[in-house]
């Protein structure tokens, strides 16, 4: 039995109990600092607005329109993310994709791209012949309401793929293998086994995608424009309010946005989501 050295940690063998305490104290102090900082900053914003002003600005037709449009566009984009994200996530999770790391990187790129640039990229794409063809034959996007969905979708889909891949990664392949030997085709195995087993993760991923979409701004500003009663989703409405001095209206919408984010992030955590943004 070795006695802990009590006269200093020169030999570095047994860390001092006092050292442990200090370390713990310091880490917790920083945690507290960050919490106070975040709480203070967000709180200051929330309490700047009086309750009656808040209600009045939220009930303003323009705010209501922004909220409605946001709900529709964010949900549409999230649905699109699901439609695209689930197959992609499944493919990435289950196959050895050739040049996997390249594919993975390409899929992650929109996440690190500044949203403004994502919007510009979309604008540029719709100047190409393919883009023009889409605009004339399928649907107009540039500076139009459907453009919002695309502008949200583009930077968000990576996150959706990422979180949904995590959900599928969490489902042991052997569930599918067993299902296959029991008579499932690959498609049946996906619908009957992988999808139900990944469900919680997928729901969490969906919630996260939805929450993240709420904040999309730069890409919408660039690609769909900030046109009143047309592309004014909440972040755009906040921007327009802020640039013309309607602080209260802007902050009120921000508070609604925050509340929605809090609810959905909380749901995401409760559902045990594990996606990381990286």
């Amino acid at each position: 039995m070795e006695q802990p050295v009590s006269t200093g940690a020169k030999d570095g063998q047994a860390p001092l109990p006092i050292g442990n305490l200090v370390f713990k104290l310091v880490t917790n102090l920083f945690l507290l600092l960050l919490l106070v900082l975040l709480g203070g900053v967000l709180g200051a914003m929330v309490f700047y607005v009086r309750w009656d002003e808040f209600v009045a600005s939220i009930l303003d037709p323009e705010s209501l329109f922004a909220l409605k449009l946001t709900a529709i566009c964010v949900t549409a984009s999230t649905a699109l993310c699901l439609v695209v994200g689930i197959p992609v996530a499944y493919a990435l999770s289950r196959q050895q994709v050739p040049l996997g790391i390249v594919v993975d990187t390409i899929i992650d790129l929109p996440l690190v791209l500044p949203q403004l640039i994502a919007g510009i990229a979309l604008l540029m794409f719709f100047q190409t012949s393919l883009g023009v063809w889409i605009e004339t034959h399928i649907m107009g996007f540039v500076y139009r309401t459907p453009g919002i969905v695309l502008a949200i979708f583009f930077p968000t889909v990576s996150l959706a793929v990422r979180s949904m891949k995590a959900a599928f990664d969490g489902v042991d392949r052997r569930y599918e293998q067993v299902a296959r030997t029991l008579g499932c085709t690959e498609t049946q195995a996906f619908w009957k086994v992988s999808l139900p087993l990944a469900r919680t993760g997928l729901v969490a991923g969906t919630v996260l995608t939805w929450a993240y979409s709420l904040g999309a701004f730069g890409s919408i500003l660039m690609f769909a424009g900030a046109t009143r009663y047309k592309t004014t989703v909440v972040p755009i409405a906040i921007f327009l309010n802020m640039t013309t001095g309607k602080i209260t209206a802007g902050l009120s919408l921000t508070i609604v946005l925050l509340a929605l984010a809090v609810i959905s992030l909380f749901a995401f955590k409760r559902l045990g989501g594990r996606a990381t943004i990286a």
Binding site: I120, L123, F126, Q127, Y143, M222, A226, K230, T231
Partner: peptide, 21 residues
């Protein structure tokens, strides 16, 4: 008449790339 509001520089970038409006 759809009016798109943003910073003037941002708008210049938009119209440069979108070539419409």
């Amino acid at each position: 008449l759809n009016v798109s509001y943003a910073g003037s520089g941002c708008l210049l970038a938009q119209l440069t790339f979108a070539k419409r409006g």
